[in-house]
Design a protein around this nucleic acid. Sequence first.
DNA 1: ATAAACTTTCAATAATTATTGAAAGTTTAA
DNA 2: TTAAACTTTCAATAATTATTGAAAGTTTAT
Lengths: 167, 167
Amino acid sequence: MEYVEAKEKFISTWGSLGTLWGINKAMAQIQALLFISTKPLSMEEIMEELKISRGNTSMNLRQLIDWGIVTKVLVSGERKEFFTTEKDVQELARIITKERSRREIKPVIKVLEEVSSINDDGTEKTKELIKQTKALKELTDDLDTLMNKLVNQKQNWLTKSVLKLMK
Amino acid sequence: MEYVEAKEKFISTWGSLGTLWGINKAMAQIQALLFISTKPLSMEEIMEELKISRGNTSMNLRQLIDWGIVTKVLVSGERKEFFTTEKDVQELARIITKERSRREIKPVIKVLEEVSSINDDGTEKTKELIKQTKALKELTDDLDTLMNKLVNQKQNWLTKSVLKLMK
DNA sequence: ATAAACTTTCAATAATTATTGAAAGTTTAA
DNA sequence: TTAAACTTTCAATAATTATTGAAAGTTTAT
């Protein structure tokens, strides 16, 4: 396998992984492309490489910027905008974990709290609903806390944590 | 909020969460319904409660069984089949983590390995592709290992792990 | 062996989600 | 100011994914 094939394989794999995880294909592919690029790319270059429209590129770049994964960079002497992604995988994992927690996990915890704190009318089904949603709430909360803890230990948090847990 | 409202809120929240994570709505809702049910349910009852068709119920139950989250149970004196889901949240998390690792993470690691081990022709872009996909491969591998470690510590692994990491 | 009770399959259709492209909007240089 | 260079917006359309329902398949009781 040589460069072009490897590059395409990486971009398309990353794209379908995104789809599987509720991130849209174009968004994941743009990030993948920037991730292996040696320099910031313009919208034109991204469109060209991925064969997607200007509108699509613009919208998905905006989302990536919203997530804090991609940033605009100014290239001196150039009028148009250029984009790069965070290149450090640990930092990338940090950003994604935090954003997912904020956008997805926290709201679910809130609903689980509401549901699990309804009035106990003494019936079996109400007791079961309360018990199970409470258990789910606690698990979700613990996992969220764990992930945030992991991710907030700077430098090599992952390796350190793995080692810690292996003891 | 009383029982029926709370139940519906739980089921629909769980359903949309599923969608967000690449699991389809009906599948997530069936699991949610079984999760708070005090007894195994028949296909008829599931269809009725969630207002979905027989075909849809059948297909999604099969998928849940494939995942190992739902099991058929025989109710004596009854001809039709009944279904329950794993009721213990920690066990549920174990099953889901293992299956996601097997179905999603491992195949990605394989691709990243292939891509990162292409021949280094000395060009900057090849070096970058190798470097970045290797870093991603290592991160993914570490995360996968960590999750599997976490999940394989029986009893209260999560709480224990959180406490360990807080030190 | 037959028929009733039940489940699965799958082509057709509906619902959802992503993508395009051209018009409108913005910024910069002269 | 104006016009060229660029980006954003969004209605229309395409692509994908989920759902239905009826026919085919299976199991069990008699």
